[in-house]
Design a protein around this nucleic acid. Structure first.
Length: 325
DNA sequence: AAGGACCCCAACCGCGAAGGG
DNA sequence: CCCCTTCGCGGTTGGGGTCCT
């Protein structure tokens, strides 16, 4: 049975010959991509439109990247797949020059096996049951975790700068393919403003320069009370994340702390207004909201991220593996 | 050298969404 | 609305190359 779109035509199937490629290429180059159903007729091909479209998209398109996937591309696929699942077309959009078919094939032939050999379920990215340990370590709160990527402390709220201390500690680098921690440079700065009642208020601003193409605004146990991952499809871009902790003190971090996270696109500033507002309520539940004014951002992906269960992601046995290697 | 097993990936299939009449 | 066509996506297949015995 042929395709419905061209069931009346004599259809050739199977691999494309160089002559057919040449005909299709010549036709698209002179007429562009219009109605695929009429392409075979005008291009002189005994194929159905669907087959022509596929051949163009997966093989003839001039902007296709050839050759094997790089380690970076592989990591991007794994990271996005963890959030989106088998949405190959969405994943391929983050890999310039790669098609959904290519990504899917690479996943099925290579990555899947690699994850399984690491004891990970390729669908859920969690440990396979055969690799689970009987006791599962769960860490759900920054204050319970001595290995937080940074620990903030203040002896006296609103104290002068010299009386306020802060401590940064870094986590050991987790194994590849499990948890990706951005390389972070931290600088901090105190700012003093005047509150409504005339009292001076202190603000401590942390600037985090993240050097990975994939920026993790991590789970509570890593960095802040959120669990959002953002991906950038330009591999060479640095992201700047600015964390403003208003009325900073050790106490206010524990309860009712309002943390605002803003992400700036350092390269062209078009993401300047892209921000994520993260609030941790007193009961420990996390609420998130986001507002964006950039046209240079993948809203579809962000929506997936914000609505995914990764938002309330907690440490599970996969993380346990990551920290106990 | 032969042939069976395995693997990769290009291409196909079917379904749902979108759009136009 | 409904119907039909077209497009796009994800799952699946099978041909051909490679590896192994």
């Amino acid at each position: 049975m042929g395709h419905r779109c061209c069931s009346k035509q004599k259809i050739k199937r199977g691999l494309w010959s160089p002559e057919e490629d040449e005909k299709l290429l010549r036709y698209i180059n002179t007429h562009g991509q219009k109605s695929w159903s009429s392409v075979p007729k005008f291009a002189g091909l005994q194929r159905c439109g669907k087959s022509c479209r596929l051949r163009w998209i997966n093989y003839l398109r001039p902007d296709l990247k050839r050759g094997s996937f790089t380690a970076e591309e592989e990591q991007i696929i794994i990271d996005i797949h963890r959030i989106l699942g088998n949405r190959w077309a969405q994943i391929a959009k983050h890999l310039p020059g790669r098609t959904d078919n290519e990504v899917k094939n690479f996943w099925n032939s290579c990555i899947k096996k690699k994850l399984i050999s690491q004891g990970l379920d390729p669908q859920t990215h969690t440990l396979l049951s055969s690799h689970r340990r009987s006791s599962v370590c769960t860490i759900s709160n920054i204050h319970q975790n001595s290995n937080s990527i940074f620990i903030m402390s203040s002896h006296i709220p609103n104290a002068p700068l010299e009386n306020t201390s802060k401590t940064f500690s870094t986590l050991p680098k987790p194994p590849a393919n499990i948890v990706q921690i951005p390389s972070v440079d931290v600088s901090s700065e105190f700012q003093t403003t005047t509150s409504n009642n005339g009292e001076p208020r202190q603000h401590l601003t942390y600037e985090l320069l993240m050097e990975n193409a994939i920026t993790n605004i991590c789970s509570p146990t890593y960095m802040n009370p959120s669990a959002v991952e953002l991906f950038n499809n330009d591999n060479n871009v640095n992201w700047v994340s600015t964390v403003n902790v208003e009325d900073f003190s050790a106490q206010t971090l524990e309860e009712g702390t309002q943390v605002q996270v803003q992400v700036q696109h350092e390269k062209d500033k078009t993401c300047e207004d892209m921000g994520i507002d993260v609030r941790e309520a007193n009961n420990g539940n996390i609420e998130t909201s986001a507002s964006f004014e950039s046209s240079n951002f993948d809203f579809g992906l962000l929506e997936s991220v914000l609505t995914s269960e990764f938002i309330s992601y907690d440490f599970n046995c996969m993380d346990e593996l990551a920290w106990n290697f």
